[in-house]
């Protein structure tokens, strides 16, 4: 469904208002990723890893500096305006913040019907009610004529999801969809996404910093570090048998309920993406760093079937 090859996104660093320094923030530094239809694929990384930038590129909200993104074989960035519009009918995004992604002056009904109108999709009252009820806002008539301000956080997030589902997209990009939602409601959202994936063969690109959330619903997981994917596998490979020291550190950082204290094997903080370290970009933080790591960038290789990693240890 999605095929991204060697996608780069560089932002020029400005010194004063108009002069450029010739340096770049390398938000994405060569990301290749392919997601099959009907798969839930998570892109996991810290702040500054470039994960949201990748989501925005897949949505054609921003164009890459280099590289190609194909959706069903069609190059997203060579499309004419009209064709891009029809492509957009097939892709929807769910943002992190349910408080700011709904127009506070539109009733829920208007929020849901807006994407349908914009995409010239016919609808009736029954269809709208069905969409709203499919995300658990039952009965629909209790919600349709209310404003976002009258809903709880969980209800707002469900409205945002209903809006994304309204045009029956084939692909959903969900950018940290649960990080602002209370835990007791988070589980329902993840289950709903999984259920829609199974029933409608929906393809999902989930962008998150939480490996536990990713492992719960994903088929495949890619771990992004400073604009490059450092490890990719099915979820059992990433969670049960992580190879990259960075993936191991991410996993160790998350507490498991009822278990004791953990040691996390990672140094320092994620560097500024203007100055990407030479060699392996993770080497300044790596507990297993070798001489080679400081000079040679490791290749992204398949170590076990379907399990890729870029690390000189393997």
């Amino acid at each position: 469904m999605i095929e991204a090859s060697d996608v780069k996104k560089y932002y020029p660093v400005k010194n004063t208002l108009f002069s450029r320094t010739g340096r770049y923030v390398k938000a994405l530094d060569g990301v290749s990723l392919s997601i099959d239809k009907g798969v839930i694929h998570s892109l996991v990384g810290e702040t500054g890893s470039g994960k949201s930038t990748f989501g925005r590129i897949v949505m054609a909200l921003t164009s890459p500096t280099a590289g190609i993104v194909k959706i069903d074989g069609v190059d997203l960035f060579s499309l004419k305006k009209k064709d891009l519009k029809s492509m957009r009918k097939r892709i929807q995004i769910i943002f992190q913040d349910p408080y700011s992604s709904l127009n506070p002056k539109l009733k829920i009904r208007a929020s849901i019907t807006e994407p349908l109108k914009l995409n010239h999709i016919e609808y009736d009252e029954k269809k709208i009610a069905a969409v709203v009820e499919s995300v658990g806002l039952k009965p629909a008539e209790d919600y349709l004529d209310r404003f976002p301000g009258e809903l709880s956080g969980g209800q707002r997030q469900r409205t945002a999801i209903a809006r994304a589902f309204a045009i029956s997209p084939e692909l959903i990009v969900a950018d940290e969809p649960v990080s602002m939602v209370d835990v007791s409601i988070r589980a329902d959202f993840l289950n709903l996404l999984k259920e829609t994936n199974r029933k409608e063969n929906l393809t999902v690109l989930l962008i998150t910093h939480d490996l536990f959330v990713a492992s719960y619903i994903s088929d495949r997981i890619s771990v992004l570090y400073l604009g490059k994917i450092v490890e990719e596998s099915d979820k059992n490979g990433i969670v049960g048998h992580p190879l990259h020291p960075y993936t191991q550190a991410l996993l160790d950082s998350i507490p498991v309920l009822g278990e004791g204290e953990r040691e996390v094997n990672i140094k320092g903080e994620i560097p500024n993406p203007i100055d990407i370290p030479p060699g392996c970009r993770f080497h300044p933080r790596c507990p297993f760093v070798m001489d080679k790591c400081r000079q040679v960038e490791p290749e992204f290789r398949e170590i076990e079937t379907g399990h890729f990693v870029s690390c000189h240890l393997y």
């Binding site: 835990v183 409601i185 289950n191 719960y216 049960g240």
Partner: peptide, 18 residues
Amino acid sequence: SIPNPKSSEVIRGIPGEP
């Protein structure tokens, strides 16, 4: 309602609203 990668149990939210 908290996912735990070491268990295959389905997580569940708490029904209803606060």
